[in-house]
């Protein structure tokens, strides 16, 4: 079951790139930050596995919205929307 629009989420404050070779699609600037699910975009093979030619199970991909000033105090935008895979999201928080 996928997360409905409006679900409050927090991106995991995890830094796998500090532990060894990885390929991740979650930008540094949203790690540990709170946002809100915009919508479920579909399920896609996990790029973290595809990059290493491993079997890649499908994962739910969400559009998640953040308040730009929560990420950058001097932000000039009003809304920032990013594709984030489910395994990077903590619900509620």
């Amino acid at each position: 079951m996928s997360l409905p629009p409006g679900t409050p989420v927090r991106v995991k404050d995890d830094w796998p790139e500090a532990r060894g070779p990885v390929h991740i699609r979650t930008p540094h600037y949203v790690r540990g930050r709170r946002g809100e699910v915009v919508r479920h975009l579909g399920d896609f093979p996990n790029p973290e596995d595809l990059a290493f030619a491993r079997p890649a199970p499908e994962r739910a991909l969400y559009h998640v919205a953040f308040r730009p000033t929560d990420l950058f105090p001097d932000a000039t935008g009003d809304d920032l929307v990013i594709e984030i895979f489910e395994h990077w999201l903590e619900v509620g928080a």
Partner: peptide, 15 residues
Amino acid sequence: AETSDDEHRAHHDMG
């Protein structure tokens, strides 16, 4: 934002 910038960030991750 300054402290989160460069601690563990990979170079290509430049947003």
